[in-house]
Design a protein around this nucleic acid. Structure first.
Lengths: 242, 242
DNA sequence: CGGCGCGTTGATTACTGTCAAACGGTGTGG
DNA sequence: CCACACCGTTTGACAGTAATCAACGCGCCG
């Protein structure tokens, strides 16, 4: 499992120091790996999962559908993210989890998670922390959707994903793989594809981002961050005792 | 403290059974009570609080401001809500907490919270749970802002607040006190006051809600819930072992 | 080669914001 | 006790943003 939970370990270590014992404890988490194609449902809304899933490769997202069938994405998960840790306590899923790109995830049975949390209060706090960071990201999305312009919100999202990817070692310089469709972006920001398309083009024309296929390049991060008024505080990317 | 944490106890008991020992442990939480006038900041963005605050009376909200001064509210808290439990692990506040109405809150020092969590793993889980429900509410708000019509989102919010208030015993029949301004509502939904005003009026005209001063009455909850396509699952108002 | 899915475009419509003014209740000072 | 100021609510006109619709381009895969 060591290989598979590498991103999780890295993600937690970006926020606090792990002892060898804690690393071993994490590595002791058993689980089964499952692969999904883009668009497949990983966890259904309304279900009561008995295992939590950790992203190993690719992207997943939480999706909610309104009565009239519109989709809203309310989180994007990258490798190392424990997608539905909350499923352990929330029992019934109020949303579904979908594969946004081809991806593989690790299902860890809840009793195993509880075992680890009982064994290490500190690790328990760090897992709690990861759900709190989830919440902080949700708040940032809300202000983005509610109060930012489409273009600056797009830029904001790109900054966020860039930093999160870099935190787990999935960037090369200013480039990273962001295999999402414009429909997905639209559903993250609560807008139409057409409008996202036009806004994205204007970001490209302004030289703020390059985006070819799934390869995103940020020519000048500082400039993009300034444009988006991006403040990374909410990502809690500082190693501190927690 | 027993009197003061009554709403917290009630809120947790709506989700799981508490033992006498757990109730006592909660009651042992010391803290200082502070009153705020509407509009005052309770916790400043960027600060690193050493205590978490619990709402005793009135409403508070998390507020984020964009670079150009627009306000977005990304949570509304009612009595019994542990507003910034996450402050304990998130160290730096990425948002401020404001008094939406006149309110009183209890500040509980983080070390005391840690003591309680160490003493009872179960209570620790329930506090974790309360932050997870916070997250679930954020997701509901995101889909509301992103994909619902203004009117149905307003109706959705009213349903949510009604159920949350009822869960801690703050409703009388179909009526509750909701002391927020239309500007606050606008900032919760990412819209302008003018637009909120018109949408609210149309809800009133349709007989879906009555709203005089701060007194909200829901003549027919089922009808309102149907109109809002409101599904209370995300509030986790079922007593289950967690 | 053809079909499919995503991206792109332009025209049109609908929604929401901004601005500016008036209304109404409350509390204060004369 | 009344006049006034203040603040939130309400209204209407107008401007700007985003959705919808429909068509086309383009690359990939069968």
């Amino acid at each position: 499992m060591i290989e598979q939970i590498a991103f999780l370990t890295r993600s937690l270590e970006r926020r606090d120091v792990l002892s060898d014992g804690e690393r071993l404890l994490l590595a002791s988490l058993p689980g089964s790996v499952v692969e999904y194609q883009r668009g497949q449902a990983i966890i259904e809304q309304g279900s009561e999962p008995k295992a939590s899933c950790l992203v190993l490769e690719g992207f997943t997202a939480r999706a909610q559908y309104t009565e009239d069938g519109k989709r809203q994405l309310a989180a994007l998960h990258i490798p190392g993210d424990f997608v539905d840790l909350h499923g352990m306590l929330l029992t019934t899923m109020d949303h579904s989890v979908q594969a946004i790109s081809r991806c593989s995830v690790l299902f860890v049975p809840h009793p195993e998670l509880r075992r680890v949390i009982s064994a290490s209060e500190h690790l328990g706090r760090l897992l709690w922390l990861s759900t709190l960071i989830d919440g902080a990201i949700l708040r940032a999305w809300i202000t983005g959707i509610g109060r930012r312009s489409t273009e600056s919100n797009l830029a904001h999202l790109i900054c966020e994903v860039f930093l999160r990817m870099r935190a787990v070692g999935l960037t090369r310089d200013t480039r990273f793989d962001f295999a999402v469709t414009q429909q997905d972006l639209a559903d993250m920001q609560g807008l139409s594809v057409v409008h996202i398309n036009k806004s994205l083009q204007s970001l490209k024309k302004a030289g703020l981002v390059e985006w070819r296929g799934s390869a995103v390049t940020i020519p000048d991060y500082e400039r993009l961050a300034r444009f988006a008024a991006f403040d990374p505080t909410y990502l809690n990317l500082q190693q501190r005792p927690r």
